[in-house]
Write a protein that binds this DNA or RNA. Structure first.
Lengths: 403, 403
DNA sequence: TCATATAGTTCAGAATCCATACTAATTCTG
DNA sequence: CAGAATTAGTATGGATTCTGAACTATATGA
């Protein structure tokens, strides 16, 4: 490697870019603050804040709300807040559905549409064309509500190269080396921050941070149970992407050294114990052609509720395997919590005790009680995360909206 | 958590601080460049580089070497290089020795002294007093060679809080909650960048990056085999410390879910299979009171060379356990290499094939051939890393040396 | 010896922040 | 109810540091 990163030189203007983002950060989602509040919180002078806010108002990201009723002495301040009239598009291609949505700067999901489709094996172009029709409706709906789209994100269940807009490999879709290129930006035409390709589990991990259980947990590992088992690491309120951008691949951590062979060629991967197919097979739920994954998980839940021994054993082993991965993450990168989504959230009632018991055996006291949370976001997680990432791009670089 | 980190506002002067460090980065260890080279490489104008270099010359971190013989047309440039007359102190307290050294800005170990001591259970104050005597000799030797010390680092085998100068827990020394405070800075009196407390494995991981096998590998997991098994993550040419500063604790990743109970209270930790005591016990090497760890490892090597079945099995299992941890790290944080130090390096001949075979079984193709390296730094690793970290502090913040 | 090429310096102009002084709008007090 | 006190926000001048263009310095080559 030895990539001596040719860092860009610092210019005088960089200071302003940084401070613009700093001020925006103080407004956060839905938070209202006056110029004086911001000056006190950031350490900038009132004069600088005034100047910065003037620029931010011009971008349209920030709105004045009028005088705040302080009830105290002195001139009341003017409330500032992120504008709910700016938003971003989120889209997801998953194995059994397409989904799109629009999220505004207050974090509200202002539009949402989901289309059940079995996408495995369908040609990339065909899927994208259908997705474009959905996003066109989303864009129109946003326009009707007075929302201007800043950018967008597309989440897919696989490894991606966001810089080149390529899906490197998405085994559960049957995609490999698909270049999306212009088709990506066409999902949100004219949006100043463009459309970025992301990994579905990574997006869901971020959605948990911004719109779910993540904020209260701090730094955590998100594990998504879908056909595959994916994940994302959130540290310091950011996704940790890793040197090559593929961090969080918990599905292929080794949790059972002498275990079964995995589709990845390895052995004893988490996916071979806790993946959808693995759990369902171990529980003896038959694979019915054409039946959706959600339906099979529901059947498993029924079996568990009825006390079926095979099912209970399968889910218990999945919980134990998750514990091995969670301990590994806690030790290796010093995480203190985990959030489980996908079928793990659906099977919470049975996964949770098994996981807790295994944690207590493998590393007692490592995680605080309550450190394992379960996602409430369901199928909107990935698209909310993808849209949220676009919004963060805007909040992190507001200067591109200035002349 | 939700620690909305009160980021400092950007000031105009920050630009210069950043650019000073940027120029220093171009000089790197031993690299020679002219002002024009630096301007071309960084994107700064010649005017800015001249001004920045003038400041850096004043700090003493940089020296002019005189005219470079270009042999080409035009005025020859003046070579610039980091000064070998600036250095930092490195010190290590380990279970069976104390060690100190002085490393200069060219990366050369200019002084080195090691004192064999069995430190387990000795009072902190007593050990520090003895260490201070060693560092006093190191400081004097540095002065005699014309080296000015910028700062220092002290590495200990345990969890530390660098900000407060506290050893939280160092089980193998029997230290717990020891506040070093002023004793730390007293190791390098008057050094402008102070003395920082670090974890021994983390320091060794960095030493590998700066002075060992790390630069060629890029991003890697360092695993140190000592009485305990420690580690450090190096990504993007930096140590990844994790949210709480305790990342890299590979010794207690779970590698054998049904395995033995560990001293940490958990079960199946890497340390229970690959720690010094675990390997020696499994190999049937008796624990002789007063005998140094190095001697026992040597005895194990003899047994291995003689083909002793118990010894071979013990080391083989350690290699397999290491593979589980390495795969976990590769998946979770997208690392592509590992460096093994301590007794793993001493037992390389037997560890290496076992590890390679296990990797091929658990995750074939994940790591490139040659991705597993073994350290050559021996007992100097931690102190070189601790000194190197002090030098990097200086190179990253040269402005503190200016009036 | 002079043209050409490259290294490095000088200086004016622009961007930006801070400190200070100012204006604006509200509550409190006599 | 008028003026003092308090807080919000704006305007202005000075300091820092970058860029760009013009300049000086020192080499090679014809």
């Amino acid at each position: 490697m030895n990539t001596r990163t040719a860092e860009a030189p610092g210019r005088v203007g960089d200071v302003r870019r940084r401070n613009l983002a700093l001020v925006l950060g103080r407004l956060g989602p839905e938070a209202v603050a006056t110029r004086a509040d911001i000056a006190a919180a950031t350490g900038l002078t009132k004069a600088s804040v005034s100047s910065l806010v003037a620029d931010l108002l011009e971008t349209g990201l920030v709105e004045e709300l009028g005088v705040t009723r302080a009830g105290e002495r002195g001139r009341p301040g003017v409330g500032l807040s992120l504008s709910a009239r700016r938003g971003a598009l989120g889209a997801e291609v998953n194995v059994d559905y397409l989904a799109v949505g629009v999220v505004d700067l207050h974090g509200a999901l202002r539009f949402h549409e989901i289309a059940e489709r079995l996408n495995h094996g369908r040609p990339t172009q065909e899927v994208l064309a259908e997705l474009a029709a959905l996003t066109a409706r989303a864009t129109q709906a946003a326009g009707a509500e007075g929302i201007e789209l800043l950018g967008g994100g597309l989440a897919v269940p696989g490894l991606v190269d966001p810089d080149r807009g390529r899906v490197l490999t998405a085994p559960n879709l049957g995609w490999r080396g698909a270049s999306l290129g212009q088709a990506l930006d066409a999902l949100a035409p004219g949006a100043p921050y463009g459309v970025v390709l992301t990994n579905e589990a990574n997006s869901a991990a971020l959605a948990e941070l911004w719109y779910g259980r993540g904020a209260e947990l701090g730094d955590y590992l998100y594990i998504s149970g879908e056909v595959g088992v994916g994940g994302g690491l959130v540290m310091g309120s950011e996704l940790f992407a890793g040197p090559g951008g593929n961090a969080g691949e918990v599905g292929h951590m080794v949790v059972a050294p002498g275990g079964e062979r995995c589709s990845c060629g390895g052995r004893g991967c988490l996916e071979t114990v806790a993946g959808q197919d693995a759990i369902l097979a171990a529980a003896g739920i038959p694979a019915d052609a054409g039946e959706s994954a959600a339906a099979r998980i529901a059947a498993l839940a029924s079996a568990l509720a009825a006390g079926d021994a095979r099912a209970l054993d399968a889910v218990g082993r999945a919980g134990g395997a998750l514990a091995v991965a969670v301990v590994g993450a806690a030790r290796l990168v010093d995480l203190s919590a985990a959030v489980l989504g996908g079928h793990f959230a659906a099977l919470r009632e049975w996964i949770e005790p098994a996981l807790a018991a295994a944690l207590d055996d493998l590393a007692p006291g490592l995680l605080a009680p309550g450190a394992i949370a379960f996602s409430d976001l369901g199928t909107t997680a990935a698209l909310r995360g993808a849209a949220g990432a676009a919004l963060r791009r805007a909040l992190g670089a507001p200067h591109v909206l200035l002349p």
